[in-house]
């Protein structure tokens, strides 16, 4: 169904191992313009490793090929990759407290030369991103003093200021309350209408079902399922992914 759309991220036969432990073993998928691809899998299955490969942290270690915007990630420098892919980590507490505005402005760093700081144009870009992510009222507040949900939205604003059309998010809703999970996911979903491609990992099949365009389930280093939530996300997949029995699932139904 997405064939007409531009494929942004293409992963083929990705393998990766830590020491002798094989984490990813022949993972292949494609992420298209305007979709949310949710990566599901148990703890330690290699979701973060997969993301780190996409972000170019393991260029010398991984096997297979990763192409982003038509160019091999191995041949893309960090400063060019930053204009294509933005990374949104789990909400965190950095050592030094920056204002939300400064934090978002950091996203524009790749747009200016190595020895200069963001100028008026970048400040304008950051202001618009702050506005769109809905954190304008927090702009002068310290990043370490706002709530987890507000931090996550600040990081979304930072990714928008980075002006990369691919967003990679490592469990964006971890540690957030139910309301904030929905607010963050709604904001992310809205971005896809502007042509963003979002690849995120989550431990919540429910969130994936409601917000993802497609689901990529990983189990034992291989792709266990790939497709629209309605097609692939059933009890059988959840049981096999998380090592549960159908009786276990009944407890939460």
């Amino acid at each position: 169904m997405n064939d007409a759309k531009f494929d942004r991220v293409s992963v083929s036969d990705l393998t990766f191992s830590y020491a002798k432990h094989l984490v990813l073993n022949g993972v292949s998928f494609t992420a298209y313009e305007g979709e949310v691809l949710a990566v599901l899998g148990p703890n330690g299955v290699g979701k973060s490793t997969l993301f780190h490969c996409l972000l170019g942290f393991h260029n010398r270690e991984f096997g297979g090929e990763i192409t982003i915007c038509g160019e091999s990630v191995r041949r893309t420098s960090p400063s060019v990759l930053a204009t294509r892919v933005a990374f949104i980590p789990q909400s965190h507490a950095p050592t030094f407290n920056y204002t939300v505005r400064d934090m978002v402005l950091m996203g524009t760093t790749a747009q200016v030369g190595g020895l200069s700081a963001p100028g008026a144009a970048q400040i304008e870009i950051a202001e618009r991103a702050i506005e769109r992510a809905g954190v304008a009222h927090l702009a002068e507040r310290g990043y370490t003093q706002i709530s987890g949900g507000e931090r996550q939205l600040t990081l979304v604003a930072r990714a928008m200021a980075q002006q990369a059309k691919i967003l990679v998010m490592d469990e964006p809703t971890a540690n957030l309350d139910f309301g904030n999970q929905l607010r963050v996911m709604t904001r992310i979903k809205e971005l896809t209408a502007d042509g963003y491609t979002v690849i995120l990992s989550t431990h919540s099949p429910d969130l994936a079902k409601h917000f993802a365009t497609r689901i990529l389930a990983i189990s034992n280093g291989k792709v266990a399922a790939l497709g629209a939530p309605a097609d692939v996300l059933d009890d059988e997949l959840i049981c096999s992914l998380y090592g549960l029995t159908p009786e276990d699932l009944l407890l939460v139904k």
Binding site: H52, L55, P78, P89, P94
Partner: peptide, 14 residues
């Protein structure tokens, strides 16, 4: 650089 290495790198900093 005061953020994590990974974060700084994804924002284009060597």
């Amino acid at each position: 650089l005061t953020l994590s290495d990974n974060e700084a790198r994804t924002m284009g900093v060597n």
